[in-house]
Amino acid sequence: MSGTTMITDTVTVFSRELRPVLRDPFSVVFSMIQPLVFLGLFAPLLPEVEGGSALQWFVPGIVVMSCLFSTSFTGSNLLFEIQTGAHERMLVTPLRRPALIVGRALKEIVPMIVQTAIIVLVCVPFGFDLHVLGVLAGVAILAVMAVGLGALSYTLALASKNTEWMFWTVQQTVLFPLLLLAGILLPVDDGPGWLRALSSANPLAYVVDAERALFNGEFPASTVLSAVVASVAVAALGLAVGTRAMRRSS
């Protein structure tokens, strides 16, 4: 029996999490149904803008929305494993506690990439202008954000042990304000001052701004940097509280 490291432990947890997705890739599409419905029903209502399709503004937001939905739901898988006993069985193994959260959170990147690819490919025939480099840069930033949001969702699941309703209540209560204050469906720039203040406290808002620029093939340094800082901050926070919660988990 060979020794393990933080990295091999993380790989073990990551590949275990990924396996059901690989076995049943269609599951990734399920959490996308809502964003795709928004895309289908909302996009036609968008006013025509000069010099291009309104999709250019709308699609990056939907990509972030899709990522927010699937990462915020992901804790429910852990919640279910806590209830059945699978989580307890993992806790008894020598897997390092940080690996238990990092491996799970890293896995969130995979569905995010698949979902982004589907959304972008669906929109190209309808006039969405594809800027490959920009999209790749946008995905890289979103990957960091996905890890952070996933870790927070797992933390919420660990905190909701024995009280499933708490997970769903908090998740639903936080999800929609985050979504609206990020300016995903409507721009917040024209809103009242208090709303803009709230929005500026929302890390997702910076990511949405950056994604819009990047998906349009632009690389404005300060916007991109703000998004990077916001994502890294969320990831650091998520992994820190997640590791703490995992150490206390039983």
Binding site: R16, R19, P20, R23, N77, F80, E81, T84, G85, A86, E88, R89, V92
Partner: peptide, 16 residues
């Protein structure tokens, strides 16, 4: 350790 609950997650396959 074989606990009182089920160790295998429902979304997984046994061999995995």
């Amino acid at each position: 350790y074989i606990g009182q609950g089920n160790g295998a997650a429902h979304s997984q396959r046994g061999r995995d």
